[in-house]
Amino acid sequence: MKVEACGKPQGAKLIRVSAEIEVRDDTPVVMSISFRGDFFALPEEGFEEAEASLRSVPLAGLAETFDRAMRLRGVRLLGISGRDVEEILGKAFHET
């Protein structure tokens, strides 16, 4: 199922999330995800590589996987974090 989410968590910039989520054995799994918004990420290309790598990630572990993917590529983030992304997407998923 396609899930669209938008939010501005405390301390973050406006973040929009588009995700394809499948439920496998009662566990929501993010099959693919993309982000849009007012945040900053340096280097920008590293963020895009990390974003593309986020496939088949359990929703419950999205924050940690997001942060690790960014860290691995040396991406510095301002206004977006794994916790922000999981919070926004989780809320939207559970409301659908």
Binding site: R16, F35, R36, G37, D38, F39, A41, E44, F47
Partner: peptide
């Protein structure tokens, strides 16, 4: 637009 913004958003 900022680099990461969706234009149609």
């Amino acid at each position: 637009l900022g680099y990461f913004q969706g234009i149609r958003d």
